[in-house]
């Protein structure tokens, strides 16, 4: 892999990193379906913690906007997401089942990584660089083509395993 690292990095540059991506229900639909390929899949009502960083301007407002846009209960695949904004400093104790990283928390992504590892929580994001860096397990891209990204180390740290078929069809870091 070392030989190909420059090439890989060059191509990673082509991966769109939606730094200010707007979260839509479709994104969560795809995320829910992807989470369905965990070996121990979630089911039923799932509390979705939309993380914000109070130290970042606009982060909380952004999280609130995401929660509002998704509604109180969002049916996605076999799951019903119940979005709630979560302070990044409370990520270790917040009563949630899944963490979602919107824009604006990149600088403290490591904190999320620690929280999800300790709590064995799945973390999803639309920001592929958060997956690449290991801060989040699952990255979702919907447009123009659905692409799924998984960080194996982050998944292992969170004790999350995906079924083989799924692993063969997604991009793993």
């Amino acid at each position: 892999m070392r030989v190909w690292a420059p090439l890989a990095l060059a191509h990673l540059a082509l991966i769109p990193a939606p730094a200010h991506a707007e979260v839509t229900p479709v994104d969560l639909q795809i995320a829910a379906r992807a989470l369905g390929f965990m070996e121990r899949p979630l089911s039923g009502n799932v509390r979705l913690g939309v993380v914000y960083d109070p130290a970042e301007d606009g982060s909380m407002a952004n999280a609130d906007a995401v929660v509002t846009s998704l509604g109180a209960r969002l049916k996605a695949g076999n799951l019903v997401f119940e979005p709630v904004a979560v302070n990044i400093d409370a990520a270790l104790i917040a009563p949630v089942d899944v963490l979602f990283l919107p824009d604006g928390v990149e600088d403290r992504g490591m904190k999320i990584a620690r929280a999800t590892a300790q709590r064995r929580l799945p973390c999803i994001t639309l920001n592929v660089s958060e997956v690449q860096s290991g801060n989040c397990v699952l990255g979702i891209q919907v447009d123009p083509k659905v692409r799924i990204y998984v960080n194996r180390a982050a998944a292992a740290a969170s004790d999350i395993t995906f079924v083989s078929v799924f692993r063969m069809m997604v991009t793993e870091f």
Binding site: G36, F37, R40
Partner: peptide, 23 residues
């Protein structure tokens, strides 16, 4: 099987719904 293996081996329909194209 894996000790905590998932219940399905390959599910075309769910994969198709996920990726938006045939698998």
């Amino acid at each position: 099987p894996r000790s905590r293996a998932y219940s399905q081996v390959i599910d075309y329909q769910r994969m198709e719904q996920l990726f938006g194209e045939p698998v």
